[in-house]
Nucleic acid binder design. Structure first.
Length: 574
RNA sequence: CGGGCCGUAGCGCAGCCUGGUAGCGCACCUGGUUUGGGACCAGGUGGUCGGAGGUUCGAAUCCUCUCGGCCCGACCA
């Protein structure tokens, strides 16, 4: 391929709206062009990258016996209503929905569980036809609350989504493991440093899920991990050993004390001598929303610990939770913000508490009266008995739940996510097959996603330097470029053409930079675009000498023209 | 959705406070000279100043509304 025939347009300046390296570099190199917030055009070179990554995904999935299909982007609301997800997705505003000319509600697919379940249900009638695993690679649409970071969080993006269908849990476990293996091979082939973490399954639902995280400073997810045990989890999901706190001792009588203006745990520590945060129970009011209901709930947490809102939403089985406003707090407790507590809490307010408070005695809490707190509160005796759940946010430095070693924290970019869905969708949609006993049974499903457009951006995030991108060979737009530095010199052109032909014949994915630009501009362009191997044919062409640049590390060396093919192949590990 | 900020040429920006001919760099076009680190000289193209309304003799500039975008937060497969 000749670069003079490819649309390439690099910029001298970073676009003003780019924050992170991959966004800046991809935009500056002209690989992506924004058309609306979170919506991008992919240039020819970027599309080559995406196609190459998609091909790796395909190969690894096909090795595990998955079938590629193409599902419709535009989907009827009816389908989503049948699984019960229409309301949640529309309420959250994440779905691009529209009406057709007849007024029927439709949407642009943010994911395809419903369509795939419908498809497989129509095709598969017997356990004998399973296992089945189908996938597709195509555009997905989500009206993100806040699109950002270029391809990292777009509103339209390319995704591979696969769905497995099995007759029982053992089948699902096997399918899940196969996909897990395929994912590992996929990301390894791309040269990405990734970690598999336990994850919350979110709106998709289901029992277990793991995320594949590319470790990068700019990652949007925080993960906690332990090198010793191998434990790794998204903070949304992570647990840790409960940090120690002083015991409350033998049960005492509750007492109420005036605490004017004392509202926070830190202020209470100052106010009550000898009472540390670990002996307090803070009560935080949340607004929770369900499909057709909403409520203010009270959540108790040990004073030195924090609430994990994802765990809270899961415990409540709520669609959303958010902190209550001051007005809502006043209305629910009768007191100003800062004085909520379990004591004298209205029976109408549901009371939850973290496991860290289970069995603890003589707590310091609020009592829903402005300017007062209570000492030696005992749950169940001085107030209603709360429902106990794990609601605690695990933090770096706390003990690993497996080894007890301190947990470490890192940032990650979620490039893949695998779920064991079970029968959530098949049951809701009455998608069944005949089992061995001749009885209809719901499919046992798994679903699996890879961010096909996000992963190359994550690769850039992990592989760049001050000069530009440094593409890993397997997903580079080309493996090698042969650049003519002075296109007016016939010996340069002839030698470059010859090397280009030889490299191509040797099976190297090579392009010829025959553009009419100054040498300096070509050097800069190739540093920015980051092809792994760069051959410069310049003034020593007459002596059959060229320069070979290994983009990673910017090692430049003189090279005899005769040795170019061998050296390139060696650098590519062939 | 809360807080902050920004919309002026393809990109990056100045001009706005204090109303009076719409500018700069890069890119682009023409001609010439160049060719090892984003070449140089000369000439040139390109803008309803996001949109609507208002104030004014006169609005990029002041006021109101609106649309779009960015950042922080909330939220999120």
């Amino acid at each position: 391929m000749r670069l003079s025939q490819i649309l390439i347009s690099t910029l001298r300046d970073d676009p003003a709206d780019a924050e992170i390296p991959s966004h800046k570099l991809l935009a500056r190199a002209g690989f992506i062009v924004k058309i609306a917030a979170g919506v991008y055009t992919y240039s020819p070179l970027m599309w080559r990258v995406v196609k190459k990554f998609a091909q790796i995904v395909r190969e690894e999935l096909d090795r595990e016996g998955a079938n590629e299909v193409m599902l419709p982007i535009i989907q009827p609301a009816e389908l989503w209503q049948s699984s019960g997800r229409w309301d949640r997705y529309v309420t959250d505003g994440i779905m691009f929905s529209l009406k057709d000319r007849k007024g029927t509600d439709m949407c642009l697919g943010p994911t395809h569980e419903e369509v795939m379940t419908t498809f497989v249900n129509a095709q598969v009638n017997s356990y004998k036809q399973m296992p089945v695993n189908c996938y597709q690679i195509q555009a997905k649409f989500r009206d993100e609350i806040r699109p950002r970071f270029g391809l990292m969080r777009g509103r339209e993006f390319v995704m591979m989504d696969a769905y497995s269908f099995d007759a029982d849990d053992a089948g699902l476990d096997a399918a899940y493991q196969k996909m897990r293996n395929a994912y590992c091979r996929t990301f390894e082939r791309c040269g990405l440093d990734y970690t598999i973490v336990q994850a919350d399954s979110g709106a998709i639902g289901g029992a277990g899920s793991e995320e594949f995280m590319v470790i990068a400073d700019t990652g949007e997810d925080a993960i906690l991990f332990c090198k010793g045990s191998g434990y790794a989890a998204n903070v949304e999901k992570a647990t840790s050993q409960l940090p120690e706190a002083p015991a409350g001792g033998e049960v005492r009588e509750m007492s109420k004390h005036e605490t004017p203006g004392v509202k926070t745990v830190a202020q209470l520590e100052d106010f009550f001598d000898g009472w540390v945060a670990g002996r307090m129970a803070k009560t935080v009011l949340y607004h929770a929303a369900w499909k057709e209901d909403e409520a203010i709930v009270a959540v108790m947490m040990r004073g030195d610990l924090e609430i994990n809102e994802v765990k809270l939403a899961n415990a409540l089985d709520a669609l959303t939770v958010r902190l209550a406003t001051d007005e809502e707090i006043q209305k629910a407790t009768g007191a100003e913000t800062g004085f909520a507590g379990p004591v004298n809490l209205s029976e109408d307010v549901r009371l939850l508490a973290d496991l860290s408070l289970e069995g603890r005695t003589n707590l310091l809490t609020g009592c829903n009266e402005t300017g007062y707190h209570c000492l030696d509160v005992n749950l169940g005796r001085d107030c209603q008995q709360p429902e106990f759940h794990d609601l605690r946010l695990a933090r770096a430095g706390e003990g690993c739940p497996v080894s007890g070693q301190p947990l470490e924290e890192a940032r990650g970019i979620e490039v893949g996510h695998i779920f064991k869905l079970g029968t959530k969708y098949s049951s809701a949609m009455q998608a069944t097959f005949m089992d061995q006993r001749g009885k209809p049974a719901p499919f046992v499903m798994g679903c699996y996603g890879i961010g096909v457009s996000r992963t190359p951006a994550a690769a850039v995030e992990q592989h760049f330097d001050d000069k530009g991108m440094v593409w890993p060979v397997p997903i580079a737009p080309f493996e090698c470029v042969v650049a003519i530095l002075d296109s007016k010199r016939s010996e340069q052109c002839e030698l470059a053409e010859k090397l280009y032909g030889e490299l191509e014949a040797a099976g190297v994915e090579v392009c010829l930079d025959d553009r009419k630009m100054s040498p300096g501009a070509k050097f800069k362009d190739h540093e920015l675009m980051g092809l792994p191997l760069q051959v410069f044919v310049g003034r020593k062409a007459g002596d059959r000498q060229v320069e070979l640049l290994v983009r990673k590390g910017m090692e430049k060396s003189d090279c005899a023209a005769d040795e170019v093919v061998a050296k390139v192949l060696a650098a590519l590990g062939r």
